[in-house]
Simulated scan of single mutants.
Amino acid sequence: MEIPSSNDQAYVIFRATDTRQEDEYVYHADLISPFIAEQPSFGAYFGNDIPYDQNFLNAEESLLFKSEHSVSLYRYFYPQEFPIPLPPMETKSPEIAKETQVIDDGDFLVNVPVPFEKSGYYFVQEDTSSASGLMIKTAGKAFPKVSTWEEMIQMVAYISTRKEHETLLAAENKKIALDEYWIRMTRDEEAAKVLIKEYFRQVEFANILFTDYKEGWATDRGMVYIIMGPPQEVYFNLDKETWVYLAQDSNSKITFTFARVKNILTPQYYTLNRSRAYQPVWFKTITAWRNGRMVF
């Protein structure tokens, strides 16, 4: 693909059809835009020269980097954990850490497999004086699936009361506490099994679709996707993404707007425009989840 040097913006749109169910998916990516400082001059690959085309990498996997300009690249590791997003109706801004720990992992040679052993996120650069680079989010071996009881407890925060969540966090045996949590919520063991399966299926899809430097489930878009399900309409703009849902039992629509924010680590960083107006529909949808009735 050749882009004229005079272009100050360029985008690619790709349509794919799942031949099993005839579902069509539309993907888009910036090639040149205000949200991309500069494309890195190197590429990342799995084994057998398969391009690294995911938004995450499972910890302990390796990548091979190729470059026509350099024999080595630089790698930085960020171990910081981030809080889960606030509900859509919470308009008070959360506290944001003013500093983050950065570990210089040194340089490594291109054309040699490089393991990424720790969970967190890495930033790989050819020129450390430039903003150009590749962010690689690393997660557990089972990601995008959930692998530990501790992870499950964090993920059910969206449909839990504060007291319920604090009780789960403090539980000595988290598996038993979670089992009791789901059964107490549904009052039916079989219904609880169905609810668990559906909820964590949403979490898995959110991880696949929305992971940036945070796990997909812990992003604003991931939170809305898990609770509300896939939107009926999606509109992409340069500086925002808009999701539209049809309200249950009415002809009205609910719109969630995610503002795109410049971020050196990823061009796909979105934050929800929060409003107290979301409170009725959000509580209604969470109540449906807790009663074992998904609204999508």
Rank of each mutant, 00 (worst) to 15 (best):
R20Y: 09
K118L: 06
I84Q: 05
N7Y: 13
R162G: 03
P280V: 07
A37V: 05
V224N: 03
N273F: 01
F77Y: 15
F283S: 10
K262C: 02
A37T: 09
E117G: 01
S129P: 00
P87T: 12
F42Q: 13
Y158Q: 11
E90C: 08
E198I: 04
L63N: 05
A206F: 09
G222C: 08
A288I: 00
I103T: 14
R15W: 07
Y76H: 02
F283K: 11
K137P: 03
L246R: 15
G43V: 06
V261I: 15
E126P: 07
L63D: 08
W243Y: 15
Q279P: 00
L57C: 04
K193A: 11
A247L: 10
K174H: 03
S160T: 10
E81V: 09
D8W: 10
Y199Q: 05
T257C: 08
S33A: 14
Y76K: 03
A170I: 02
R274K: 08
P79H: 02
Y78F: 15
M135A: 08
Q268F: 10
P40I: 11
A44F: 13
R201D: 10
P51K: 11
P83I: 04
F296D: 09
V102K: 15
M155C: 06
F236R: 13
Y199H: 09
R221G: 05
F77K: 05
G106I: 14
P267T: 03
V295R: 08
G140F: 04
I226E: 01
I32E: 02
Y245A: 05
A218C: 11
E2M: 09
L63H: 08
Q125I: 05
A191Y: 00
Q268G: 00
M185C: 02
S252V: 08
P79R: 04
K141I: 12
T186V: 07
V71D: 10
A131T: 00
E164W: 13
D212F: 02
K253F: 14
S129D: 08
P113D: 05
K175T: 02
P88W: 05
F296K: 12
Y27G: 04
V224I: 15
I3T: 07
I196T: 03
Y245T: 10
T91Q: 13
V102E: 14
R162W: 00
R187A: 09
E61G: 01
L168R: 11
I196Y: 04
